[in-house]
């Protein structure tokens, strides 16, 4: 059952990767990267259950935090041209 969920998550990862490559605008690519991040967070947790070691949840919490901070930081970099306050 967990293996089936993992395969479905991989398929949707590949579908979103198509959008990330053809892109058109930068914002499409950022959006696709954020969605891939969400899917990776879910996939790490499901993989932990599949291997019988649910302690993988800690890694996926850290991944969720970094995914959010990273997306907002990249968007701020495109908006202002710098990450600092200058």
């Amino acid at each position: 059952m967990f293996l089936a969920v993992l395969i479905a998550l991989s398929v949707s990862f590949l579908l979103i990767l198509v959008r990330l490559i053809i892109g058109k605008t930068t914002y499409d690519r950022i959006l696709a990267a954020n969605s891939i991040g969400t899917i990776i967070v879910l996939a790490i947790s499901v993989h932990g259950f599949y291997m019988g070691r649910p302690e993988f949840i800690d890694i996926s919490i850290v991944y969720a935090l970094i995914n959010f901070i990273g997306t907002v930081a990249v968007l701020k970099l495109f908006d202002k041209g710098t990450l600092g306050d200058k």
Partner: peptide
């Protein structure tokens, strides 16, 4: 899984960034 796959299809199929 249904909602995630539908969302991925929508991410490819919809016309512009606001719809995606």
């Amino acid at each position: 899984v249904f909602f995630i796959l539908t969302g991925s299809i929508g991410l490819i199929r919809l016309p512009d960034v606001f719809s995606r």
